[in-house]
Design a protein around this nucleic acid. Sequence first.
RNA 1: GGAGAGGUGACCGAGCUGGCUUAAGGUGCACGCCUGCUAAGCGUGUGUAGGUCAAAAGCCUACCGAGGGUUCGAAUCCCUCCCUCUCCGCCA
Length: 419
Amino acid sequence: MIDLKYIRANPDIIRKAICDKNEKADLDMLLAKDEERRKLQYDFDNLRARQNAVSQTIAQKKRAKEDASEELKEMSEVASQIKILQSDLTEINAAVEELVLTIPNVPQTDVPIGKDESLNEIIRHVGEPPKMDFEPKDHLDIAMQNGLLDLPRGAKISGSGFPIYTGDGAKLERALINFMLEYHLQKHGYTELMVPLAVNRKSMTGTGQLPKLEDDMYHISEDDLFLIPTAEVPVTNIYADEVLSYKDLPKKYVAYTPCFRREAGSYGKDTRGLQRLHQFNKVEMVRFVEPEDSATALEEMLADAEDILMAFGLHYRVVSLCTGDLSFASQKTYDLEVWAAGSGKYLEVSSVSNFGEFQARRANIRYKDAEGKMRHLHTLNGSGLATPRLMIAIMEQYQKADGSIQIPDVLRPFMELRV
RNA sequence: GGAGAGGUGACCGAGCUGGCUUAAGGUGCACGCCUGCUAAGCGUGUGUAGGUCAAAAGCCUACCGAGGGUUCGAAUCCCUCCCUCUCCGCCA
């Protein structure tokens, strides 16, 4: 969340951020409630001060066996006033809190302004589309021909968007996950975590999925738990309500998890095969850094994700999201889009974002800097990578004329483990 | 799910027959002093958040797992919930 003091001091910046991000937060209501809150707080504090002072007097008089009935009479009046103020204060604090949580993060100044993805900025292309002397097939056709997927039966047991990977398809999926994990561990210095796949409401609020995206998530009502839409949620929240030392930073974690997304209300578009799923696998990178380091860390994480695509020898492009396409919590985001040769388009396989202190405030993650000052740290995360579209790209970019697939060399050892 | 014990400041830990605790004491940390022997001793300081203020200082308020309640006054009494530990039950 944004610092309330900052909002109060810079309402225009916030107003512009809400507008640029196509959000619908009621800033004026928030400012009015905040004003009201401060008045109440002031009255409450003064009354409390009075009560504390007189209570001391009462205690002294009682000890000296003196009469304190006059003070007691006054205090019974004060106490009832305090009670009223207290409940008003509780109410208004909750209202302010609720409103603050609807204020989106402020985009960085170098983020292109635009209302939707059509105004995203393509930063660069890397590699070349493979040259083929035959008509490339679509990944679903390739997968069917090679027996890698069974989507109808996935749909039967769960619903559409829940894929079954079969035989070598399952093995390839597992190889991708293992390769990416090991790559980030060995070459990029991350620490691996295995984390819960169901998290509570507090965690979802901490990273910013709630309250906005509740309808997009699978919810276990009996226990009020949510299936994670990304490992970002459990991993970022591991330090919620904690105070770290600057000596502990930066922290770099990588975690593989399945991800679950209801994506309420989105049908039809780009849903063929593995393009858009309710359950998919993803290797996620998360960093906790000092504020001064987050801009650099973002570029590093982008490079970490790109390394995977380059290791696979895939053609892709790097996109900087415009304000309208930025997520609620993000200050700046790069997407990596990989070339799907069969369908002739670029597919998003990674999103790398800097959240500044936005998530750290929400989740209450702080650290003591070298001067001993308590500060909110910065969080970042990036997919490294999501597997379904990566697999699409591998199938489509590495297909041969006969419909078979030539697995990238770096994956071979992961496909051929022997027991 | 059942029974018992417990959750106190960065950490350990006292207080828990309500007011003389602005949460004792210790460890750690910071600064200073002392000392020739790989360290110890002594002294001082040491949280977070909100408010007030142009700002700082100062002052006020809140915070002893969370939320309610009783009371003039709650770390301390009562209720609900969460979590941890031990034992039992159930289960991969």
